[in-house]
């Protein structure tokens, strides 16, 4: 009898401890998810203006002319390069999922660091891609180090 009371007490304590530990965490998460939503929605709008003509609104690309952004191994391996090319463009061969693309992409130098981060957040979290939000600070430091500025 005594031991079962003790067990209930211990279990309740553990439960309280877990709940207590989770509450502030949840708040952080919801703040984060609002930020994520803002980046994502704005990123989608910018994607439609600057990117979707070639890469298509569903990210599928076009033939072997414009590479897909859906399940692109290049994107998964090269976040920094992707961030650079959104703003500064890219020339030369580019391999995506075993296919070579070679259509020069002109840059969009008018984009701000925040806009680049928003576009990156959108493309890295759409069409089955899953990634964290690309922070403006991260985009900013990557952009400062781009080779073809």
């Amino acid at each position: 009898m005594k031991s079962s009371r003790m067990l209930i007490f211990i279990l309740t304590s553990i439960l309280v401890w877990i709940v207590a530990a989770c509450v502030p965490d949840n708040q952080n998460k919801s703040e984060d998810s609002v930020k994520f939503q803002q980046y994502y929605v704005e990123g989608e709008r910018l994607y439609k203006v600057y990117c979707s003509n070639c890469h298509q609104s569903d990210g599928s690309g076009l033939g072997r002319l414009y590479p897909p952004l859906v399940r692109s191994d290049f994107m998964q391996k090269n976040l920094a390069e992707v961030i650079c090319l959104i703003k500064y463009g890219r020339k030369g061969e580019l391999w995506v999922n075993g296919v070579m693309y070679n259509q020069p992409m002109k840059g969009n130098p008018g984009l701000t660091e925040l806009e680049v981060a928003e576009i990156a957040t959108y493309i890295y979290n759409s069409w089955g891609n899953v990634h964290d939000r690309v922070e403006v600070a991260e985009a900013s430091s990557i952009l400062a180090a781009c080779p073809d500025r």
């Binding site: 003509n53 070639c54 298509q56 076009l62 002319l65 259509q103 002109k106």
Partner: peptide
């Protein structure tokens, strides 16, 4: 023209 990124890619998608 091939280097156009405004309406041509959409036209080529549609022509395809």
């Amino acid at each position: 023209f091939t280097s156009c990124r405004t309406i041509c890619p959409i036209m080529k998608t549609q022509m395809l």
